[in-house]
């Protein structure tokens, strides 16, 4: 068992002896085995591993869109195994940000509306506050001029920037990204990584999966998964130590 810790700082994510099994007919497949992990605020961590190693499953558990078969998953101080469906959804809305490989923007909303959407679900800000927050973020990710373009009118890189802005808009404790550069060319992918690193330097915690060695090389911390187990963590670094 490998336990990744960041001493003296309360972790955002804490996994302890987590198993995840899937039933495929009569066969039970173990996607994760005895995984223990902690993610501290400010980290820029990559979950690396070959296809089928359990990267996405691990992200799903941390992202509260799936629950562990055994073990403890604590996200933002809450034991996800004990939360109802509604509470898990609220936790995702208020504490987590998601960036997807295929961007997964709402095709009929423009960039501004896509970024604003989580704020509407939260119902915490008035229209003026939402506008200010959304435009700040669109400026920050460099696509303010495309605020009223729909996803279909944007390039892959621009869409992913919108997705990043959407992930950040609710001030999440951690942003989870599943292979965020997989659908982008190398130049655009690098630009997105640059942006994510800049945001990390400004204080946003990132946890993302990849099997691209180049992306792995940009990470502050690498958690390697093979066949559902964490096999090694060569560099144990403090938050933002990659900077």
């Amino acid at each position: 068992m490998h336990m990744a810790t960041t001493p003296a700082i309360e972790p955002i994510v804490h996994l302890s002896n987590v198993d995840k099994d899937y039933k495929l007919g009569a066969v039970t497949v173990s996607a994760l085995k005895q995984v223990s992990l902690e993610i501290a605020p400010g980290e820029f961590t990559v979950i690396a591993g070959p296809s089928g190693s359990g990267k996405t499953t691990l992200l799903n558990l941390i992202g509260c869109v799936d629950v562990a078969t055994r073990g403890e998953v604590i996200v933002a101080g809450q034991d996800t195994g004990k939360l109802s469906e509604g509470d898990l959804t609220r936790l995702r809305l208020n504490a987590l940000g998601f960036i997807f490989q295929s961007f997964n923007l709402v095709g009929v909303l423009d960039a501004f509306q896509n970024v604003e959407f989580p704020l509407l679900l939260q119902k915490k800000m008035n229209a003026a506050q939402r506008k200010e927050r959304v435009m700040d973020l669109l400026n920050r990710v460099g696509i303010a001029e495309y605020a009223h373009h729909r996803p279909g009118e944007l390039s892959g890189g621009q869409r992913q920037r919108v997705a990043i802005a959407r992930a950040l808009v609710t001030f999440p404790r951690i942003v989870l990204a599943d292979e965020p550069t997989a659908n982008l060319d190398s130049v655009t992918g690098n630009q997105i990584l640059d942006l994510m690193q800049e945001l990390n330097r400004e204080g946003t915690t990132f946890l993302f999966s990849t099997h691209d060695p180049h992306v792995v090389s940009r990470a502050g911390r690498v958690v390697r998964l093979v066949d559902g187990r964490i096999v090694t963590e060569p560099e144990q670094q403090s938050p933002m130590s990659h900077t």
Binding site: V65, R92, N94, N104, R166
Partner: peptide, 16 residues
């Protein structure tokens, strides 16, 4: 379906 999944992931409740 994927859009629904993504919206659920970012915090949209079932009733919404």
């Amino acid at each position: 379906t994927r859009e629904v999944g993504a919206l659920r992931a970012i915090g949209m409740q079932r009733h919404t």
